[in-house]
Amino acid sequence: MIVSRISRFISDYQNLVALFAGACILISLFGILSLPLAYEENQIYPKAIDRTSALDPYDRGGTPFNTTTVVAQYPENSPYLGYVTAYLTPLSKYLADHTLHAGTTIVSHPGGIIDEILYNTRGLDTVVETSILLSAFAIASYLFRRTE
């Protein structure tokens, strides 16, 4: 019976990767066939990278400790939109106000190198991204430290 042959094939988890890869190929082919797709010029969070800037990959324009123009989906939900400093902790804010040791949020802040424009509007994404990393590390370290 063809049915039982199919079931025998898909019941083996060793074939799982092959099956899924096959599905990926099919849908990618469909995607290639449906090209070209139009690019929407009116994007949220537009980027203009200034290669000459000292802050090169992280420079998003605007003046530090001041507003930057950001196109957000719901500007009314982000009253501090464009104010990168708004997300500094009180201590960092104090440092930034009185010294030059805390710059922008790019690398001086827990949370690491995070696109600071997104930081203002998409805070939850940042949290989830780091949580994914945390759980991956937790699994790896548990397995590594496990005693037989």
């Binding site: 939850l124 994404d125 989830v128 949580s131 994914i132 759980s135 937790a138």
Partner: peptide, 16 residues
């Protein structure tokens, strides 16, 4: 994007 992030976290924790 937030949904896809949560989904991939589900995938990882399932293995965990």
């Amino acid at each position: 994007f937030n949904y896809t992030l949560f989904t991939s976290m589900v995938g990882i924790t399932n293995v965990g």
